[in-house]
Design a protein around this nucleic acid. Structure first.
Lengths: 227, 227
DNA sequence: TCAATAGTGTCTTTCAGACACTATGGT
DNA sequence: ACCATAGTGTCTGAAAGACACTATTGA
């Protein structure tokens, strides 16, 4: 089919990661100033190209990028969507394989110096269709995610059910009933007690909470229903 | 970062489509013998490369491929997942942006001559990780899809509720209760009557069925539940 | 009037949502 | 004893699953 046997040209391919976390009860996304020469210094999603000699598969590209960004390892990451067109990058046809990741709140600080966390509902105009990519990630976490244990990945290893409730409220953007939430989470055995009791609220703390950890979800099961 | 400014090499990128349909009450996938010189004649998913001069975005690549395959237009297609590694194609690093599509049963015949429809649970060994891609598509349709109106895209424009029930049974791989199914589908207003009554079963037909069409789903809403 | 498929009614169980209640421990 | 937060009990209503029932037509 190719008219000549000259080497095929492929579209530029990169991996972009929508790193989400919670600050002040609201979802934030991590952005960083671009380092190369193209659009140098502009805020954008963290990302990079596939290093064909180092990376065996896309997952390794993602891990490498996260490691380079200040030692983020072992966080929850999932592929989001692949965006490709001849308009999203002025240099020509490009494909962005987008992932999203959830960073536990307490690990915010240890991430690389020049990451900026911006509330997802107050984003500036970003290059390369990154606004759209972030919207897609938020939509995914709120939709499919809101009814699964995925948002719990925003919590520290050990957490109280009140904290967990608050994370779900932040993600879904609405108040939830405490009683129903506890019932669901416990009867479905999504969490298990660690045996510890801790007083959490910074001031005016009274009764300590039972602490829980996420029960190893076999394949991130969703808590949905049937037809 | 690049050691020299020689032109960057990008991984090979292609789009592969898992075309699903129902035959004899079971899910089948469309495969075609490969046409290029590499692995010529081997059965594989339909797909192709991005034509950077013709295709404005990935959606157009998909549409072009489907058109080339015997005039499939206007069928339901959705992006599935992107697979990328240095092992899935022996020629080197490659990325496959996979889509899945649902072909209404009655349009089977008009598709290109050399498409073969194989039951998804009786696939031969396929090249390029295509088995895994098909598994992912089936898993997606059964999971997320099973609780949405997506499987209804396997039906003709106009269908009876019994036909619809049968499609869902085929997709989910289990019997469903007729009464509950009708209730759900009607109270949620997923379908609307066309006003026609038709006798469907080829032989020994008796009472005619009300015919329905899919009500234009605003954004393919899922019928799931809450936390 | 019978055969065959289309379509309905109703009971039970499950579970979300609402909301009032009790429990614990620091001050 | 009091207060703030942790955690429980219980009622109601919606909807799924099971299953028996009625309806409509052709032959």
């Amino acid at each position: 089919m190719a008219r000549t046997t000259k080497k095929l040209e492929w579209p530029a391919a990169s991996v972009d990661i929508v790193l989400l976390t919670i600050r002040d009860g609201k979802l934030h996304v991590a952005l960083a100033p671009r380092e190369g020469k193209h659009r140098h210094g502009e805020l954008a999603l963290i990302g990079g190209t596939i290093h064909m000699n180092e990376d065996a598969h896309l997952g390794e590209t993602v891990e490498r990028i996260l490691r380079a960004r200040g030692g983020l390892e072992g966080i929850f990451v999932e592929q989001l969507y692949t965006f490709g067109s001849n308009t999203r990058d002025e240099r020509g046809w490009s494909v962005s394989i987008a992932y999203y990741g959830l960073v536990p709140m307490h690990r915010l600080e240890m991430t690389s110096k020049d990451l900026k966390f911006i509330p997802v509902d107050a984003l500036p105009e970003l290059p390369f269709e990154h606004n759209r990519i972030i919207e897609t990630a938020v939509w995914r976490v709120r939709g499919k995610g809101g009814y699964s244990t995925i948002p719990a990945r925003l919590l520290p290893e050990e957490f109280s059910l009140t904290q967990m409730l608050e994370v779900y409220e932040a993600v879904l953007g609405k108040k939830l009933d405490q009683s129903s939430f506890r019932r669901k989470v416990q009867t479905k055995e999504l969490v298990e007690p660690t045996g510890n009791k801790v007083i959490l609220k910074t001031e005016g703390s009274k009764r300590p909470s039972e602490m829980f950890r996420l029960r190893q979800a076999d394949g991130e099961e969703t808590f949905a229903r049937s037809l």
